[in-house]
Design a binder for these strands. Sequence first.
DNA 1: GTAATCCTTGACGTCGGCGTCAAGGCAAGG
DNA 2: CCTTGCCTTGACGCCGACGTCAAGGATTAC
Lengths: 138, 138
Amino acid sequence: MRIGELAERAGTTTRALRYYESRGLLPARRAVNGYRTYDEDDLRLLQQIRTLQDFGFGLEETRPFVDCLRAGHPAGDSCPASLDVYRRKLSELDALIGQLQTVRTQVGAQLARAELEAGATLPGGPEPRCELTDGLTE
Amino acid sequence: MRIGELAERAGTTTRALRYYESRGLLPARRAVNGYRTYDEDDLRLLQQIRTLQDFGFGLEETRPFVDCLRAGHPAGDSCPASLDVYRRKLSELDALIGQLQTVRTQVGAQLARAELEAGATLPGGPEPRCELTDGLTE
DNA sequence: GTAATCCTTGACGTCGGCGTCAAGGCAAGG
DNA sequence: CCTTGCCTTGACGCCGACGTCAAGGATTAC
């Protein structure tokens, strides 16, 4: 199979495949005319790469999985190096999620406070019932 | 005050200040010799920018806050446009956090499964008690 | 034969927020 | 006068994962 068919079957592009090859991640055999040639095993390697990419793994992080498959293991995560990547990714995710939740809380608090202050000074708000200013707005 | 002092007082760099100016976010007056000149109000604008940047806001998202301060409002988030930015950021954060949590769950499940499978075939695991293979490993 | 569709390599563009030179001007202290 | 330290503009570098274009060779369809 040539590069176009492989790309289509994996739901990616030829450009991505050439990029992977340039990174040494997915080398290709060559036909006599110079065309890249792939087989079903390459498709499996590529699917492993795509799956991890979709999960947000960097390309380099997919390398242990690909190497593991190429070494003949049944799954890309059958090797210790792959499990290490999983674990590092988990701690990265936990750290990132924690930070984002902190930010979310802070931004939410700022919004609530700002909305309150806006409501306290604008006429469409929750009617502050302040006799001193009521006379001015009516 | 000149650019170096402002940068230091705001905990940023001169390069960042020139960048903000190039984006029209924080224009500077000029002294006779061409040096950029700033005052305390500029420091407040800059602090608003830095705070939002630290929260993960893009530069363009800080613009409404800066404009709001420059219009004479007491806080950068005293204007409706700023509140809209808050709200959009909140929904962005919620979406992102949700995605990351989904990924975290999936990766965690993959790790657990892969660790189990590794333990089932490797000798250091939880001793599967399989008579057929036990004889081979001992 | 020739048009359409594949394939090749090479190289520059993208996005954000600056970092990092390079080459030179201006001001102050010794 | 000379050095030191601030300032100026301009321009390229960076990171990641490709997109996009260019110029040309190979193959297939008609």
